[in-house]
Simulated scan of single mutants.
Amino acid sequence: MWNKPSDSERIDAVTAWLDAADIAYDLYFHPASPTIELAKRHWRDDGSKHCKNLFFRNHKGNRHYLVCFDCDRTLSIHDLEARLHQGKLSFASPERMMRYLGLEPGSVSPFGLINDAEHHVHLFLDRNLLYCPSLSFHPNDCRATVVIARTEFERYLARVGNSYEYLDLYEE
């Protein structure tokens, strides 16, 4: 059993924010898992939908997007560009990730929006997530997982204040 890591400032920031907003969640710790493949080894069988999170910028570099979807699905950037109607997309650099979300690669999650005081980042969520009773994300650190009811996640999104929308990210 893993104990809480001593260097857990990002996790503490997320849980403190959620606690202050009176948003219910569960948290558990595991070995560092910066990729979905590694994370799958440590996730609990709790019925939540584990999400993959990708951070993009537009061609001009003046808009940034966080895209969240079912971790068992794959997206091509070309298809994503067509669905999002935001022009040519590329993965945002680690510097941009730090500037706008306060995060490093491997720890991207919607909880990074707590660090986006200017609400610069727009969040795109796969519409299929609307049908999941609970969702799982890193709490801005790949050594833990937050499990949150979708209704509580909606409350989080309303409180954090960034623009967001659900849309079809892939063909069924």
Rank of each mutant, 00 (worst) to 15 (best):
Cys142Leu: 02
Pro34Thr: 05
Ile148Val: 14
Leu84Glu: 02
Arg10Trp: 07
Cys68Trp: 01
Tyr65Cys: 07
Ile148Glu: 01
Cys142Thr: 07
Leu66Trp: 13
His30Lys: 03
Lys88Val: 06
Leu80Met: 11
Glu172Leu: 07
Cys71Ile: 04
Tyr25Cys: 02
Arg83Ile: 05
Pro133Met: 00
Met97Phe: 08
Asp126Glu: 04
Tyr131Asn: 05
Glu104Val: 13
Leu54Tyr: 08
Lys52Gly: 05
Ile11Lys: 01
Cys51Thr: 12
Asp70Ala: 03
Pro94Thr: 00
Arg96His: 09
Phe56Cys: 06
Leu27Cys: 07
Ala13Cys: 03
Ala158Arg: 08
Val146Leu: 12
Phe69Leu: 06
Phe91Ile: 09
Arg63Glu: 10
Thr15Trp: 10
His59Ser: 13
Val121Lys: 02
His50Ile: 01
Ala13Glu: 11
Ser134Leu: 04
Tyr28Cys: 03
Pro133Val: 00
Val160Tyr: 13
Arg155Pro: 06
Arg96Leu: 15
Cys51Lys: 03
Asp19Lys: 11
Leu27His: 05
Leu54Ile: 14
Cys68Lys: 06
Leu169Pro: 09
Glu152Val: 09
Glu152His: 14
His122Trp: 06
Phe55Cys: 04
Leu123Gly: 00
Ala21Phe: 04
His119Pro: 14
Asp26Cys: 07
Ala13Pro: 04
Asp46Thr: 06
Arg63His: 14
Ser163Tyr: 07
His85Tyr: 09
Ala24His: 14
Ser90Glu: 13
Asn140Ala: 12
His120Ile: 01
Ser163Phe: 07
Arg83Cys: 04
Asn128Glu: 10
Gly102Tyr: 02
Asn115Ala: 14
Ser8Ile: 05
Glu165Cys: 15
Tyr164Phe: 15
Asn58Gly: 10
Ala32Tyr: 12
Pro34Glu: 03
Arg155Phe: 14
Leu103Trp: 00
Asn62Val: 12
Leu66Asp: 05
Glu37Gly: 09
Glu81Pro: 13
Pro94Trp: 00
Asn140Asp: 14
Phe124His: 09
Phe124Glu: 00
Val14Asp: 00
